[in-house]
């Protein structure tokens, strides 16, 4: 595909804003006004999107440490008992010869969360640095992040089923470890971090990075919310 850089009409440069919730296109909406169709506050760019995204991302990175160090399962069989972390669970699957499963769990629980946090940090840093390189690729990366977000919850669900089915009284039992709670929190936090990021920032040049429309006329706040505005 040819590079479309020649004539890109960008909303922010023409006083046009698409409502984030319902997609309606508004021309020169007043500052702080709501979408007339769905009532969502209209923003040219999500307010504080970088700060929110960083906050969730840093929290996720911190919790990623206990998620991997703490055991996710405590197992007892006859007089033997042991604990598994996420990684040792994958290793055990591999040693049992269940290579396909080991690869699925390794991808969903280790590769995806790491890639997600790394990729999001990269996007955030690039936007803050004011980088203008490969915006199309960064846009694609963001869409992939949005899509794969919840798949890492797979291990949490797998542990829930194991814990429910395996309790044969004294002979064998499986108890969940606190690592799985930390892991679930990492998944939720990375999803929140991804949702907070405003992908339109990928395309803004630093000079133009403004959070409101330059063309917006000043309107008194009490009149700005009138949903009947034409």
């Amino acid at each position: 595909m040819s590079e479309p850089t020649g004539r890109i009409v960008r909303g922010i440069e023409h006083g046009l804003v698409g409502c984030e919730a319902c997609g309606l296109v508004l021309e020169r909406p007043a500052h702080g006004s709501d979408c007339p169709r769905c009532g969502t506050p209209v923003h040219a760019r999500r307010p504080e999107s970088l700060a929110r995204s960083w906050a969730f991302l840093v929290a996720a990175m911190i919790l990623y440490v206990p998620a991997n160090l703490l055991p996710v399962l405590h197992s007892t069989k006859l007089f033997e008992s042991w604990s598994d972390t996420i990684l040792s669970g994958v290793v055990a699957l591999w040693e049992d010869g269940a290579y396909d499963l080991a690869i699925i769990v390794f991808t969903a629980s280790i590769v995806v969360p790491l890639l997600k946090m790394g990729a999001l940090a990269l996007l955030l840093l690039e936007v803050q640095r004011g980088g203008r390189q490969l915006p199309r690729e960064r846009a694609l990366l963001y869409r992939i992040l949005e899509y794969i977000g919840h798949w890492s919850m797979l291990d949490v669900f797998a542990v829930a089923l194991l814990v429910t089915l395996v309790h044969f009284g004294a002979l064998a039992s499986v108890e969940p470890g606190s690592g799985i709670v930390a892991f679930g929190a990492v998944v939720v936090l990375t999803m929140l971090a991804t949702m907070s990021f405003d992908p339109r920032l990928n395309w803004d040049t630093p000079r133009r990075r403004v959070t409101s429309l330059p063309a917006a006329p000043a309107v008194k706040p009490d009149t700005a919310k009138d949903p009947l505005s034409p």
Partner: peptide
Amino acid sequence: TSTTKIRPDLAICEHCDS
């Protein structure tokens, strides 16, 4: 109150604002 106009003839990309 405002000069906001609705433009049903347009669509804005939510990912890149074009």
